[in-house]
Design a protein around this nucleic acid. Structure first.
Lengths: 115, 115
DNA sequence: CTGAATCCCTTTGGATACTG
DNA sequence: CAGTATCCAAAGGGATTCAG
């Protein structure tokens, strides 16, 4: 169900946005940049995203080769998401967004839950 | 009609996205980073955005203090958009997105029109 | 636990026509 | 030229339920 239309872009920024422009994608990449995470951990870290949205965004990132999905065939189920090496090349962008947010909007950011 | 709800964010990236997460905002910032542009120039540079969308995104960027809108009271009308100094602090993000696109998706990016 | 599926409302966004 | 206004279709996205 991925959008495999080979679109042509009018500028480099638009091209990049075609991969990471989704509503929660950069946030997912931000958390995965730190470490591999399970689905439930991502849900906890991104509470404003419903399971449906989170799954959708994860699938799109996976289709783009940006993240890796590892399923453990156990009960109860366990799935781990991690950045691929390709996905890691996006880190400078996410880092820049993170740094800007911390510098300019720090007072509106809740402290991370160290649960 | 801007959303002035003082939302609280769960991570710095989300905070940043609240300002530049719009569909064409980063593309607008990319073009304005190079120079001041008129409305019609932006339309030409971002052909996939309709006038309505472009206006909307410009208004939101203006409300956030990221861009400046200068109207010349002449006939025919002339309006110029430029980055504020606050908006210029976002440049590292846009630059990173631009660099990534050029490096990884160069073959799908149309050459810029030098009109 | 990790999803998929459904329902349904909201938002986005394109086309078109019109104005100062 | 630089928008606004209106209409409408498509996509986004939340709540809930169900399944392996």
């Amino acid at each position: 169900m991925s959008t495999n239309k080979q679109k042509v872009f009018h500028c480099p920024v638009e091209a990049t946005l075609s991969l990471i422009g989704g509503k929660y994608k950069c946030i997912i990449l931000y958390h995965l940049a730190e470490r591999t995470l399970r689905f439930s951990e991502l849900r906890h870290l991104i509470p404003q995203a419903t399971a449906k949205m989170l799954t959708q965004q994860l699938r799109e990132l996976q289709s783009a080769g940006i993240i890796h999905r590892k399923v453990y065939p156990i009960v109860p189920p366990k799935t781990e998401y991690s950045l691929t090496s390709y996905g890691e090349t996006l880190s400078p962008i996410v880092k820049a967004m993170c740094a800007w947010g911390e510098e300019h909007l720090a007072d509106r950011i809740l402290p991370a839950d160290k649960g």
